[in-house]
Nucleic acid binder design. Structure first.
Length: 426
RNA sequence: GGAGUGAUGGCCGAGUAGGUCGAAGGCGCUCGCCUGCUAAGCGAGUAUACGCCCAUAAGGCGUAUCGAGGGUUCGAAUCCCUCUCACUCCGCCA
């Protein structure tokens, strides 16, 4: 959520920010209009309440002294009526302000390149050699099916389309990757391991910015204000919701593994095959809560932490900075890590690292106090996927494939897998 | 799922025949005094949000907040209703 006071003071900055993000800048003016109505109603109702409070004290005093207060009470009855009316107005206007505020996206950092969509993203780094094959590389779903390590058809029978079931060494690979990613972040990069619940309530969803605007991207539990989490970001970011942290705790660095559930509304026909776009996938997510002055340095190190995994897995990738039009709604600045997928001949997003500045902190009321005499301040929140496991499986299969259809595993994974190669069962 | 008890400030804990209660007291913490050191003692201070005035300062004023929401009333921490959460017992289960 944006800072309403800041919007009042510098509306132009926010109009420009929205325009850069390909949102309608007039939303700012609509908001300010309602805000002004709200404030003038508030001033009036508070004035009446002050009057009532004074009168009530006077009535109490008179009664105590045995005087008659009937006239004052009659007078105040009318004032109370008026207050009740005005309060209803104030409540409605406040609700409007809040709901408009909750709908507004974050605005991009000045350094973010302007652009319409992912075509305008800027490649800031490229790592690794794209493998050369002396045969035609197969897509990962063919490799996996031939190796009998995933089952798409039966997964559809059990649930429906866009689900998959891992089997044998495929299941082990999924588990090995999660363990490897977690171990790495915990042992090498100093994250605290968290294993969260996969269901979160509506308040948590508002806290991270998934509600009210993106409810249709999630699965909701029938009859309950509960949702399947689309990412472990939800529980990890909400962990300290409504708390004031001591600076000695900062930066907070969480690494959490979870299943992620996405309705994929609006992506019909996209990536219908393979492990790229499913209703359920697993992911190790990194979340940081930091002081505002450190958040951009923390973003850089977050990106590096996620890159570590790709490098350790020997997967060629590039880092792109998302342009204003391609950023997530919540982000101020965002880098995507894209892994090389040989059969498609293109890079695919495997991680997204963002600095949200205080956008989520305001919603989730995540604060810290610099020292005892200072006011609480909002933290900055960041998160990054480290990494999406399903897409990592796809990348390992495609990049590690050999002429006979077997898969050479990255060295880092061998201790976790117990084999160096996944091959057809004899 | 059934029965019961409870929810007050950083913590503990008063406060129900409604009335100057943002809330006694204690602890903790901060500053000062005192004190060979430490401890003890003395004094002062110690919530958050929002709005208005104002130089987006200092400061002042006001409103709200005793789990949440609603109701009764001139006035509610105190009365009524709904909900949430915690604890205890029973049932059920991994």
């Amino acid at each position: 959520m944006l800072d309403l006071k800041a919007i009042r003071q510098e509306p132009d900055r926010f109009r420009r920010g929205l325009a850069r993000k390909r949102h309608n800048p007039a939303l700012i003016d609509e908001l300010l209009k309602v805000d002004e109505a709200w404030r003038s109603a508030l001033v009036e109702v508070e004035r009446l309440k002050a009057e009532r409070n004074r009168a009530s004290e006077a009535i109490a005093r008179k009664k105590k002294q045995g005087e008659d207060a009937a006239a004052d009470i009659a007078e105040m009855r009318a004032v109370s009526e008026k207050i009740k009316e005005l309060e209803e107005q104030v409540r409605q206007l406040d609700e409007q302000v809040q709901s408009q505020l909750l709908e507004l996206p974050n605005i991009p950092h000045d350094s973010v390149p302007d652009g319409e969509d992912d075509g305008d993203n800027v490649v800031v780094k490229q790592w690794g050699e794209q493998p050369k094959f002396d045969f035609t590389p197969k897509p990962h779903w063919e490799l996996a099916q031939e190796l009998d390590i995933v089952d798409f058809e039966r997964a559809v029978k059990i649930t429906g389309s866009r689900f998959v079931l891992y089997k044998g060494l495929g299941a082990k690979l999924e588990r090995a990757l999660a363990n490897f990613m977690l171990d790495y972040q915990i042992e090498k990069n100093g994250y605290v391991e968290m294993f969260p619940q996969f269901i979160a309530n509506d308040t948590s969803m508002v806290g991270t910015g998934n509600l009210p605007k993106f409810g249709d991207e999630m699965f909701k539990l029938e009859g309950l204000p509960y949702y399947l989490i689309p990412t472990a970001e939800i529980p990890l970011t909400n962990y300290y919701r409504d708390e004031i942290l001591d600076p000695s705790m900062l930066p907070v660095k969480f690494a959490g593994y979870s299943a992620c559930f996405r309705s994929e509304a609006g992506s019909a026909g996209k990536d219908t095959r393979g492990l790229i776009r499913l209703h359920q996938f697993q992911k190790v997510e990194l979340v940081k809560l930091v002081t505002p002055e450190t958040s951009y340095a923390e973003l850089d190190s977050l990106v590096e932490d996620c890159e570590d995994i790709l490098q350790a897995l020997e997967l060629p990738y590039r880092v792109v900075e998302c342009c204003t039009g391609d950023q997530g709604a919540k982000a101020s600045k965002q880098y995507d890590l894209e892994v090389w997928i040989p059969a498609s001949g293109r890079y695919r997003e495997i991680s997204s690292c963002s600095n949200f500045e205080d956008y989520q902190a305001r919603r989730a009321n995540l604060r810290f106090r610099r020292d005892e005499s200072s006011k609480p301040e909002f933290l900055h929140t960041l998160n990054g996927s480290g990494l999406a496991v399903g897409r990592t499986v796809a990348a390992i299969l495609e990049n590690g494939q050999q002429a006979d259809g077997s898969i050479r595993l990255p060295k880092a994974l061998v201790p976790y897998m117990g084999v160096e190669v996944i091959s057809r069962r004899a």
